[in-house]
C-alpha cells in the first residue's frame, strides 16, 4: 500500500516536471493535454511544492503567522478560485468537469511558485532595498523584466486553464477574468493588509 502510494507520487512528480518544462515551450498544446488528465496525484505534488515553499520561505524570512495557517489560507483561496470559474463556466457550458479545473489551475500556479522561490533566493543573496547605483538600477530592470515575464506567462496559463476546462470563447473568458479580479483583488489586498500575503497576487 505504502509502496504503491510512493510509486504514484514518484511517477506523478516526473510527469509534473515534464509538463512544467513543456508549459515553458508549448503552453497551448501542453495545457490542452493537461485538461484531459485524470491523475489527481499531480495536483497533490504541486500543492506539496507550495507547502514546501512556505516552509522554506518561513525559515529565510519569518512570517507573521504559522506556515500551516498561510497554507490553509492559500488552499481556501485556490479552491474558491476553482469553484468560481467552475460554477460560472457551468452557466455557459453544462458539460465541463471539476477535476479538469483543479488540475489545470494547479499547473497555472507554477509561474507564481517560480517567482516566489527565485525571489526567496535573491532575497538571501542580494537583500533589498535596492539603491540608485548603476548595479542597483541594472538589477532593478532585470528583476522587473523577470517578474513581468512570469506574470505574462501566468496570465497565459490562467487563460488556457479556463479555455480548456470550461471550453468557453475568448469574450466569455475575459468577462469571467474581469469579474474574478473585481471580487478577489479586494480580498487579496485585505490579506496583504493582514500581512498574510506580502504581495497581493498569488
Amino acid at each position: 500500500m505504502v509502496f504503491k502510494i510512493l510509486m504514484n507520487l514518484l511517477v506523478s512528480s516526473i510527469l509534473v516536471l515534464r509538463n512544467f518544462l513543456l508549459l515553458i515551450f508549448s503552453p497551448y498544446k501542453t495545457m490542452r493535454k493537461i485538461a484531459q488528465e485524470k491523475d489527481y496525484w499531480q495536483l497533490a505534488v504541486i500543492i506539496s511544492f507550495v507547502l514546501i515553499y512556505f516552509e522554506i520561505a518561513n525559515k529565510i524570512r519569518r512570517f507573521n503567522y504559522s506556515t500551516l495557517l498561510i497554507f490553509i489560507v492559500f488552499l481556501s483561496f485556490f479552491i474558491s478560485t476553482v469553484f468560481f470559474f467552475y460554477l460560472l463556466g457551468k452557466v455557459y457550458n453544462k458539460k465541463e468537469e471539476l477535476k479538469s479545473f483543479f488540475i489545470t489551475f494547479s499547473y497555472s500556479l507554477l509561474p507564481t511558485l517560480v517567482w516566489f522561490i527565485t525571489n526567496s533566493i535573491i532575497y538571501y543573496v542580494l537583500p533589498p532595498p535596492r539603491t540608485m547605483s548603476l548595479q542597483g538600477k541594472g538589477f532593478s530592470i532585470l528583476f522587473f523584466a523577470f517578474s513581468l515575464s512570469l506574470f505574462v506567462w501566468k496570465i497565459i496559463l490562467v487563460y488556457l486553464s479556463v479555455r480548456f476546462s470550461a471550453k468557453l470563447s475568448f469574450y466569455k473568458i475575459i468577462f469571467l477574468m474581469i469579474l474574478y479580479l473585481c471580487l478577489f483583488f479586494p480580498i487579496s489586498i485585505f490579506l496583504y493588509q493582514l500581512k498574510v500575503f506580502r504581495v497581493p497576487f498569488i
Partner: peptide, 10 residues
C-alpha cells in the same frame, strides 16, 4: 527602484 524593493520584500 522603490517598486522593485517592495516586490523583493514580497
Amino acid at each position: 527602484i522603490r517598486l522593485v524593493s517592495w516586490l523583493q520584500y514580497g
